[in-house]
Design a protein around this nucleic acid. Structure first.
Lengths: 331, 331
DNA sequence: TCTATTGATTAGAGCGCTCTAAGCTTGTAG
DNA sequence: CTACAAGCTTAGAGCGCTCTAATCAATAGA
């Protein structure tokens, strides 16, 4: 059906090996032959068969990517960054999801490995560490938004502690003293954000208030209601550091429902800088993770391993930044 | 490095061919040998090499997917649907983006084709029709959110006309008579939505008002400002059918900034039912496209072609549905 | 003139698998 | 005891490519 290298060779009047050389644009091919081959390939609409190439060369240009949840804008952004970097370097992505179910993720991971990829990148996987280490025995593995102690595994994470600290410092700088954190429970990264909040508050000589919550808008509302029932209006925290943007939006809506103005009475900081936060209607002050950059870094880490430039584990901790919008104000 | 079929065969004391049969779980293999092979494979951690298999069998279990923009939740949802269906049928996705730039999309498409995939699915591609038809000569092609007349190409689209009509009918049913559409300009699907709006209004004996806009929140704000400067307060449309959810949110915030209550004074309907719309803070009445279903259907269409069950083009037009929330009210 | 030397080209084995056709066992019937 | 089918198993070619080693042509040096 599709023309093969042999067809191109026949048409150009050269050997298959020469066509191979031209296709990989190797040196030591005369301009004359090169032109002839290129012309024949063009006329036949030939393009090399990646899989055959991979098999013969015993190398792979395929990168396995397992995504925790594509619907989550965070991962979509990371994949975009990954794709851009991979394409630029001539790699292709094969992509999977495991629906956040360990058993399905294991299957997905196995499926990726059956391509004998150059490497595998896992975005916030929920498979057990042992499965990750097993994968790392087959090819380089990079984890995004998940930590690992394994030597064969690189990691790329956002410094959640620093992010929370950024939020706290911003609020303190605006004169706030009573600040509460609506934490993300067991969600990925929530522990670091909580820890960062506690440390930053203590460092400022303030009492950290932590309300257990989740990374959803309804949980944000509930958390605010809880605060309202716990504190007198006069003692209510004037600053809120939400676990993520969704949580923040829920919190804001509960505050407004209860007659409190944002940022007039209470300032709110989100986390993640999702597209939601930038809507003028919302205009949320939030902590931004360099998501696309995280994807790029994950690819770079893999590439270094593939090229054998590094064998020690890389532990990237990216520094988040604060995006100040309209939900925070001076006390 | 990784064990091959030969290794398994040696360990199980059988031939490579028998291992192959077991791996494809073919019939006519004695239980005795099957067990032995499975045991050996297990012990060695063997799993078949997909690429080698593909090469030898001259069939592919790879599906090429080119995404217009992964950051767009719409496509992310479609990909999720696609992935679920593909995984269930034993196919793998290789995924690409072309950054909405025709030349880069062409490169991306070529890259997908170099895998000799079983088929290719393009999500709202911007490449010229000729490129799509050329691809269709190599393998089945399914287009999502883009139409085509080519016989070798299947399409899966949301019925934008019907969606707009749904919105209009909802508003009319609530007693609205002056209704405006904030259209999406040249965006994918915008033309159908505009057309549907016009037809539905005319069918109701009403005058369609169309304001040129875009699929962003800032454009939604601008469109509302334009309406406000065009009409007296008394004549202002009481119903707005936005081009999409972002546009609707922008419109709402401009309305509120100008002292108009939603839905008290003006009712607003969005389009797409993004995660944004379901936030309690926003709670937008909107038109829902069955996105995951679109992904599944795209896969089904491909599968039918691959299996040779169908050679005529499939033209799926999915019926959207209205999700009524809090931004629309009786007049 | 003959041999090195260099650069361009090609033959051919092999990557890990599938698949066809052939081979080997049995069991049963003639 | 031979014949034959049916059920299992295997040899071996080949998928489209890469890569090493060998070949060949042309030029340079002695």
């Amino acid at each position: 059906m599709k023309p093969t290298m042999e067809d191109v060779a026949a048409r150009a009047g050269v050997s298959r090996a020469l066509v191979s050389l031209v296709m990989r644009n190797a040196p030591n091919v005369s301009a004359l032959r090169r032109e002839a081959v290129l012309k024949a390939a063009e006329e036949l609409g030939y393009s090399p068969h990646v899989m055959a190439r991979s098999l013969a060369s015993r190398t792979s240009t395929v990168l396995g990517v397992m995504v925790n949840d594509l619907r989550n804008a965070f991962f979509a952004d990371v994949v975009e960054g990954l794709d851009a970097a991979a394409q630029a370097a001539g790699f292709d992505l094969i992509l999977n999801t495991g629906g956040r179910v360990p058993s399905r993720e294991s299957t997905a991971l196995r499926s990726l490995l059956s391509f004998r990829p150059a490497g595998v990148i896992l975005l916030s996987p929920v498979v057990p560490a042992s499965a990750i280490e097993a994968a790392a025995r087959q090819c380089p593995v990079v984890l995004v938004s998940r930590t690992s102690r394994a030597a064969g595994v690189d990691t790329v994470n956002d410094d959640g502690e620093a992010g929370s600290a950024l939020a706290v410092e911003h609020l303190v700088g605006l004169g706030h003293r009573r600040i509460a954190h609506l934490d993300g429970g067991g969600a990925a990264g929530a522990a670091a954000r909580r820890r960062g909040f506690r440390r930053a508050m203590t460092a400022q000589g303030l009492e950290p208030i932590v309300v257990r919550s989740e990374h959803t808008d309804t949980a944000g509302e509930k958390a605010v209601l809880e605060l309202l029932s716990t504190y007198d209006r006069a003692d209510l925290p004037t600053g809120l550091v939400a676990g993520n943007d969704f949580n923040a939006v829920g919190a804001i809506s509960a505050l407004e429902d209860n007659g409190l103005r944002v940022p007039g009475d209470v300032s709110v900081v989100g986390y993640d800088n999702t597209s939601l936060a930038s809507l003028r209607h919302v205009s949320l002050t939030t902590v931004d993770q360099p998501r696309t950059e995280m994807g790029r870094l994950a690819f770079e880490a893999l590439l270094e391993r593939v090229r054998g430039e590094r064998t020690t584990p890389a532990r990237h901790l990216l520094h988040p930044s604060l995006v100040v919008r309209s939900t925070t104000a001076r006390r």
